[in-house]
Amino acid sequence: MISRWTVVVDRDDLTKTEVLHDELSPELGDCEVLLKVSHVGLTANNVTYGVIGDLIGYWKFFPVAAEGRGVIPLWGFADVVDSTVDSLPAGTRVYGYLPMSSHLVVRAKLTSSGFVDTADHRAELPAVYNGYLVTSQDAAYDPRQEDIQVLFRPLFMTSFLLADQLADNDFYGARTVVISSASSKTAFGTAQCLRGQGVRLVGLTSPRNVEFTESLGLYDTVLPYDAQVDVEPSVYLDFSGSADVRSTLHDRLGDSLVKDISIGLTQQKPSSDSRSQFFFAPEQLRKRSADWGPEGLAERFGAAWHAFTAQAGGWVGIARHSGPDELAEVWQSVLAGKANPNTADVITF
């Protein structure tokens, strides 16, 4: 038997965590692969998975028997330790969607870049989360940048697709893009993708994060939340979920606010405001996969990713942690909003 630990959270109170221990059978079925999780990143994006877990189905990816509790998904690297798939022998390193757990069994269907988990419980879930990349087949993989990848790559895909949707719609006629939680990783990744596209970028952030956000050099203007933005045709990208910030912008800009798009939830409250449209990255991913084909999409994303990673290492320092207890501690810190924008958390399992 294989000993496994799993960090679970209370689905109704995300501050409550527990480390569960169980045993996995060493016997694998046809097409099954046993993964040992290596290391992962934990950011405010993972908090969003918990906040809207029922809305999108995030709780369903890694089900647990513990009633009322669930497993928060993370992005990171894992290694094959046993397999019934000849093309995925022990030692194969993969990148993808992983649980807060030491081990994961997947049912692998091979693809050109890795495999898809075809487990029954994942069949109806968004396909973008079911794919795993084998590092030896991933053109974007760089072993020297694994920490950057676990922290930024899932966030940057959202940034890339969001910026693409805006450009694809000619920015809805706006000349300015206003971005809240501008110091957050997905927000400044979006700003990086929008640079040079003919729109003015205004970042809104808390007073304590103004200096860091300005240091990124990605925004034309950085303002604290209590400052007034200029009245001109604008798109609002809401990464904070703050009802107060949204209302202030609507009151200030009126009809000049041509689009209000909700992406993140650093305030941990999903927006029910009818004025806001929720951005769901897999929808734009499906559109561009059809428009450009898988190879065209990979090429465009790869170019944007390499441009981003060339700078990202200088923006954020890495804070390293290890094991389930420290993983739970990092979760509590990020959940409470205590994480500093100029550091990021990587956990080794």
Rank of each mutant, 00 (worst) to 15 (best):
E27M: 03
R69C: 13
E27V: 13
D79P: 02
G29K: 10
G50K: 05
E27L: 10
D86M: 06
D79C: 11
L55Q: 15
A66L: 14
Y49A: 03
G70V: 00
T17N: 12
A66P: 02
E27C: 01
S87R: 15
L88N: 10
F62E: 12
H39E: 08
T15S: 15
D82I: 03
K36R: 15
Y49F: 11
T15P: 07
E32L: 10
V51A: 12
D22W: 06
V81R: 06
I72T: 11
N45G: 14
K60V: 00
E32R: 13
I52L: 10
Y58A: 10
P89K: 04
D30N: 11
V33Q: 03
A65M: 11
V94M: 08
V37K: 04
Y49H: 05
W59A: 04
V47H: 03
V47R: 02
T15A: 15
N46G: 11
G76Q: 11
L55V: 13
H39L: 07
T15V: 09
A44R: 05
V37Y: 00
L55E: 12
P89L: 07
E23D: 13
W59T: 03
A65Q: 14
W59V: 00
T92D: 02
G70H: 02
S25F: 04
P26E: 14
A44D: 05
H21W: 11
L24E: 04
I72H: 00
D86H: 12
T92K: 03
E27H: 08
Y58S: 09
F61C: 08
K16I: 10
L74R: 01
P63N: 10
N45Q: 06
P89A: 08
Y49C: 00
T84M: 05
K16W: 02
L88Y: 07
G68M: 12
T43C: 08
T92I: 06
H21Y: 13
N45P: 09
E67K: 14
L55M: 13
A66F: 11
R93H: 11
V71L: 07
E23G: 04
L35N: 05
R69D: 12
L20V: 13
C31D: 15
G57T: 03
L42I: 15
S25M: 11
